[in-house]
């Protein structure tokens, strides 16, 4: 029995200790926004946050996640798709098929929380998710726009 803190809620799951977090999220907790695409940490479709860090959940055994570590999935990024990245993505029509986008957004969100105003080089270094449809240029614009939305939000506070 593993105890986890997912999107602010504590849950208990009865799974083999080796089961990757990805599959616990998808199959035990029905949080299917986190995607399987490679299973070897190469593509980033399964990216979630653990204590604010972007982590590829397909390589993370559930036993390695502590009961007090905050796991955030795309479903928990914001209650009403109001995260600046979600706003920016909507404004720019970023997704195409959309399958890689939860992971893409989670990678970008971790970057933004560490670097509120990332440069193109920061984006290149930190957003290494694969998108086969080819949304990269809108993803880049989306991250810059989200940074601006953030800034405007802070200015209003």
């Amino acid at each position: 029995m593993a105890k986890l803190k997912i999107n602010g809620k504590t849950v208990e799951v009865d799974v083999d200790a080796e089961t990757p977090l990805l599959w616990v999220l998808r199959e035990q907790l029905r949080l299917t926004g986190t995607k399987y695409a490679c299973g070897i940490g190469a593509c980033g479709a399964c990216t979630v946050h653990i204590d604010g860090q972007a982590v590829r959940s397909c390589l993370m055994p559930v036993s390695a996640v502590g009961p007090d570590q905050a796991v955030v999935t795309i479903e928990g990024l914001s209650p009403d798709h109001s995260h600046p990245l979600q706003q920016a993505w909507e404004q720019l029509d970023v997704p195409q098929c959309g399958y890689c986008q939860p992971g893409m957004i989670m990678s970008a969100a971790a970057l933004l929380s560490q670097k509120p105003n990332p440069s193109d080089a920061d984006i290149d270094a930190n957003v290494t998710n694969i998108c086969r449809c080819g949304t990269y240029n809108r993803v880049r614009r989306g991250i810059h726009l989200a940074a601006e939305i953030n800034k405007r939000g802070r200015a209003h506070e």
Partner: peptide, 15 residues
């Protein structure tokens, strides 16, 4: 068809 792709709600075959 954008919004659900930003929240994890969009159901793909695999989901």
């Amino acid at each position: 068809d954008t919004v659900d792709k930003l929240t994890g709600k969009q159901v793909f075959g695999a989901d």
